[in-house]
Design a protein around this nucleic acid. Structure first.
Lengths: 340, 340
DNA sequence: CTGAAAGCGCTAACAT
DNA sequence: ATGTTAGCGCTTTCAG
């Protein structure tokens, strides 16, 4: 595999052309202070004329930084990728990164081999940090990265005692307030469709539901809980199940937007009017329901905020040697769009 | 923005520990031939013990290669990203790249600023090549990259006279054979729903339709052609339009899978039976229709093949200085899933 | 304010 | 078969 690249003009050549030393050129292209304006201009002209572009590998070697961060996708089944939620996150990260001058690199880690390959890539100082999304409970990658002392920030956590920095939404609180809202509106027979219960996020939302029910003196037996895998189809199935078990249902907390849409379909298929007979609230992980069900009340997670928070944490990790984990829990917001 | 990385053990330290020269260590970690088995083992032990990981920046600088290729997304509206088609392509590229030891990096280029940033990244020898997908007709990035002499391969072309290497499907032939198939089955009143006609792929498919119609002595006036933007909704609208203009329609070539599904909805809404009254064929850019309309006949593009072909071209470009553009047109295949 | 010089960690050509 | 050496192009002290 013999690859080559010709290699354009070097900093040295620019220096010669501008009649200055290499150090000066370096200062100019790095916008460092302490260069006479006239010299700066001279250098800039030389750069223009030669079409000089800094060799990032050299810069990286000398400066011990890569000016790039990786967004790592460990999703084994690739579906994740195709979700609006994800592209929203990427957009928000891209925006947040815009003024740092760092490149955002997406990398896919589906197998152990790829995990290893990425680890070497990271340890080889090709990125300054890693951002992980949708990490499954058993994934060892975050720990591997942390051990390699690579600044790392996850979106969501793997469990209650996460020991890697992360940004997460207040899932418990969000669920709690959604259920409280239903209770306030007089609903009493409230069921919930959860996400996959081996995911911490799903556990948290279920906990929020239970807490709110308990506070109101309502029970929350197993039969009022149905599990989904966040997809529309599973939401539909779960709702049908719940209806069968409890025809008296008048409120539902759904695991996600998509699930909520599925639930609505099942409800309508069963002849229930929404929201008159049954009120549904979902977490809007993605802006999906907003399109298909504009009147649906949702627990909103501030996606743009997530991107900003992740980058902020990452920069902090890069600044100081990681003496501690940093966690940010973002507040969720109940967006009431229909009378329920 | 002060970033640092401690910097682990270096090749030199490994050499000392193993009691050999640096060159030897380099040979061992690069699996180069000509090292005595015993020495090799000694070096490997030292590597283990020290937890040595090569600094890729240094390797990149010395070796003039990056061992990474970028997959660049220029889609201004980000939707592309969320399509199964895309994740399928990524998977196939990842697989094709697996044994080359190169990292696949996705980068997003949404604005001019980002375009510039990526260009510098590429020119800075951080990637050995670029893969571009869904490039719009006016996008200057491919030319910028080619000018920078970075090996570049596109998926699809911007026009008939593309001067950057690319892999494309035989869109004209695919459309032609689909229409021929309809004609063979006795259909005569065949319309087509095209993609956005400012995209070359859409033009090609339209041409294929026209050629097949002409061959059969059939006309293909403007009124039998409706434009879509590849979405389901636009497919529905286009079909409704066509039905209004030509209630006698008995066959349709749709721009894509998604469009075809939309068309089916419109047909059914209008009381037409499919395929009895009207036969529909779409291009399966994504495996979507396969799920929702398992009986739909489609023009299949071999997605895995596309990934392999792109990587092969890229490697060739890297091997030899680009003395010419390389093009690969992949054959499409008509998959008949329903009697039409 | 600016030039000179010392690396950064590795590869590859040249010795041995 | 292996050690030695000369860079790769840049950042960063350290003098001036």
């Amino acid at each position: 595999m013999g690859r080559r690249r010709p290699g354009g003009p070097t900093l040295e050549e620019v220096a010669v052309r501008a009649g200055v030393g290499r150090g000066t050129v370096s200062r100019v292209i790095n916008n460092a202070a302490g260069v006479k304006a006239s010299t700066r201009r001279a250098v800039q002209r030389a750069v223009e004329e030669l079409g000089y572009v800094p060799n990032l590998a050299a810069r990286s070697l000398a400066g011990r930084r890569a000016d790039a961060v990786a967004l790592v996708l460990t999703e084994p089944d690739w579906r994740q990728f195709a979700e609006p939620f994800f592209s929203e996150i990427v957009r928000s990260l891209g925006d947040a990164l815009a003024d740092t001058g760092m490149q955002l690199l997406l990398t896919l880690v589906r197998s152990d081999a790829e995990r290893q390959r990425f680890l070497e890539y990271a340890r080889g100082v090709r990125v300054d940090g890693a951002l992980l999304v949708s990490v499954h409970a058993g994934d060892p990658l975050p720990d591997m990265l942390a051990e390699a002392r690579l600044p790392t920030v996850m979106l969501g956590r793997r469990s209650g005692e996460e020991h890697v920095s992360y940004v997460d939404a207040d899932n418990v609180g969000g669920a709690r307030s959604a259920v409280a809202h239903l209770l306030e509106r007089g609903r009493r027979e409230i069921a919930t469709i959860t996400g996959p219960l081996d995911m911490y996020v799903a556990q948290c939302r279920l906990r929020g539901y239970r807490e709110a029910m308990a506070t109101a003196g309502q029970g929350s037996e197993r039969s009022w809980v149905a599990e989904s895998d966040f997809t529309q189809e599973s939401g539909r199935r779960a709702m049908a199940e719940l209806l069968e078990r409890h025809p008296e249902i008048d409120g539902v907390l759904a695991a996600s937007d998509t699930t909520a849409v599925g639930a609505l379909q099942a409800l309508r298929a069963a002849g229930r009017r929404v929201p008159e007979d049954v009120a549904v609230i979902g977490f809007d992980d993605f802006p999906l329901a907003e399109q298909t069900e504009p009147r649906l009340t949702t627990v909103r997670q501030p996606l743009e905020e997530i991107g900003r928070a992740m980058i902020r944490l990452l920069l902090e990790e890069m600044e100081e040697p990681a003496v501690a984990w940093r966690h940010v829990i973002l507040r969720t917001e109940l967006v009431v769009r229909e009378s329920s």
